[in-house]
Write a protein that binds this DNA or RNA. Structure first.
Lengths: 137, 137
DNA sequence: AATATATATTTTAATGATTGAAATATATAT
DNA sequence: ATATATATTTCAATCATTAAAATATATATT
């Protein structure tokens, strides 16, 4: 294979990658439309809904950031009264974040934006996409 | 469909999305392994290789950043002697960025990292992935 | 031709998210 | 009882980015 066709393939890959990345952000874009919260903040609220509660460390792992960054993120959401810090009794070093009532309401509002039928379709397609991508990475 | 299964679908979607995003970064991760340059810097070098030259404005559009950010990105690459600013003669307001010889060498080094056979496979799969994703977004 | 308006880039100060490392609090092992 | 390990917070510093003013050049209008 020539150097030229190598470059051509890399060019195709970069273009397709970029497009995939843009599309993979569309769902959260949809959720964040008209919201004053940042996308990370929305994602954290959703994760808290899915997991009921998350340790600071778990949040740091999820977002691949330092503990200090988690403190900062949670401070902001706590100031907005969307999440609440809860000290764990079995180990008083750990802090768990949970949604407040307002936080639960906000998550329900997000869910209202989503057309029911579409959700199943999107989930199915994304699972297939991942299977396909697993063949190369 | 119940509220519960709605949440479940959103949970699936978020998880798959995240995984897709991670996988879609793998190619550039591969390129940037062991490099001192940032991923954006590598991507810009590649784009300059593909396009021969790019106006500051084109770079701003490509990365969806302000012109000021482009100046800053290009300053750094120019300081590293990887790109060069060229004033356009037909319109002396515009600046075009081009790879220097060192820049060309760097891009060739990046290409060396890529196993030839794999490139075609990856390109094919990514095109299919995009087709699949187009059905939902 | 002179003047006003538009465009491309750079400069600059400010912002915001993040980091690394020290500080604090608590738990576990010796 | 003491040392070591762990979880979180604090804080100063860094970095990429932005918005807006400044600069330079081009185009349109009178």
């Amino acid at each position: 294979m020539s150097k030229n066709s190598q470059m051509h393939n890399v060019e195709i890959i970069m273009r397709e990658m970029l497009e995939i990345q843009q599309k993979s952000k569309m769902f959260v874009n949809l959720l964040s439309e008209g919201e004053s919260l940042s996308q990370s903040q929305l994602i954290l609220l959703l994760q808290l809904k899915f997991n009921d509660e998350m340790k600071a460390t778990e949040i740091a792992d999820f977002f691949s950031v330092t503990p200090g960054a988690v403190t900062s993120m949670c401070d902001k959401l706590e100031k907005l009264n969307l999440v609440q810090r809860v000290r764990e009794n079995e180990d008083r070093r750990v802090v768990k974040m949970v949604l407040t009532n307002s936080g639960e309401v906000k998550v329900q509002e997000l869910f209202l934006k989503l057309s029911q039928e579409k959700l199943t379709d999107i989930a199915k397609v994304l699972i297939d996409v991942n299977k396909l991508m697993s063949t190369i990475f």
